[in-house]
């Protein structure tokens, strides 16, 4: 059974991508109780933005990353302020639809701007195999991807947990009116969390794009990340990480034993079971029913 540690190691990269996208879900859900169906599409957009910025900045990797951060934060804030903030207070179905339509727009616009042909992202990170003890093979790119996911999510977590801005975000999510009475600009806090969500999605999209060629059809990543977040608990960042790992491992096992076409459906079978058995996930807070 040497396959298990190997499967686990291989799963960690996928888990990092899920966790980054999932962290965006969680940030948005916590701040505005919106299920952001566009998260995977935003990852796609982020990867293409990395490509465009990389060309613009003469393939300087670090400057491109920095610029990508700025641009995606701006996109997140604008998306929220233009499309979602005017509809705050509408039912969840309207808000979900808005995010779905934003996703549809991205999918339609990306190939218009960048074409349908595959692109390759310039990267200084080597994909050459690094052999670790225990027969595990990894690469520079894999290690950086995993480390980035951990750092980004830990950063989000600390921000929410310890800073006053984080407290304001949690307060605005729980009770927007009371938060306003306490002087919190609720639209602004939600906009900030959208900015973070798009940032995390961009990082995930780039990390994905760096190890494969970039085509407009990678939005499936977002839908596969959904179950990961639910397994962990929709409102929990550590949950998103644990859920991402569990899901990635589960998918790898399913691919090994059932066949490659079972990966996506495995995710959703897991989702369904979790919803029926423990709807608030492993780490989520049970929502109180107020009579």
């Amino acid at each position: 059974m040497a396959a298990l540690p190997e499967a686990l190691a291989g799963s960690l990269v996928l888990a990092s991508l899920y966790a980054l996208i999932g962290a965006g879900f969680v940030m948005v859900y916590r701040s505005s109780k919106v299920l952001n169906f566009a998260q995977g599409h935003l990852a796609l957009l982020g990867a293409y933005l990395f490509y465009a910025l990389s060309v613009l900045l003469h393939r300087d990797f670090l400057w491109t990353l920095a610029a990508l951060g700025v641009v995606s934060v701006a996109i997140g804030a604008v998306l929220y302020l233009v499309f979602l903030s005017p509809l705050a207070g509408e039912g969840p179905i309207i808000l979900i639809m808005i995010t779905i339509i934003i996703g549809a727009l991205i999918v339609a616009i990306v190939p218009m701007v960048w074409g349908t042909q595959p692109h390759t992202l310039a990267s200084p990170l080597s994909q050459a195999g690094i052999h670790l003890p225990g027969g595990i093979v990894t690469s520079e790119l894999d290690l950086v991807t995993i480390a980035t996911a951990v750092v980004v999510i830990a950063g989000f977590w600390c921000l929410i947990r310890f800073t006053t801005s984080g407290i304001a975000m949690r307060a605005a999510a729980e009770n927007p009116l009371l938060a306003s009475y306490r002087g919190v600009n609720v639209a602004l806090t939600a906009g900030v969390s959208w900015a973070f969500a798009v940032f995390a999605a961009s990082v995930a999209g780039t990390a994905y794009g760096l190890r494969a060629t970039l085509t407009p059809s990678i939005t499936g990543l977002g839908f596969a990340a959904f179950p990961a977040v639910v397994v962990g608990g929709l409102d929990s960042l550590p949950g998103a990480m644990v859920g991402a790992v569990l899901l990635a491992v589960g998918q790898n096992l399913a691919a090994t034993y059932l066949g490659g076409d079972w990966t996506d459906v495995t995710a959703y079978l897991v989702l369904l079971v979790v919803l029926l058995v423990r709807p608030h996930g492993l780490f989520g807070r049970k929502e109180l029913v107020r009579v």
Partner: peptide, 24 residues
């Protein structure tokens, strides 16, 4: 049946799962 226990957004997710599972 899940709708008897799940409300709001969670039902969206369970029907999303239905979509993927039935398609598969």
């Amino acid at each position: 049946f899940p709708s008897l226990r799940l409300r709001g957004l969670y039902l969206v997710l369970s029907t999303l799962a239905l979509q993927f599972i039935v398609a598969f």
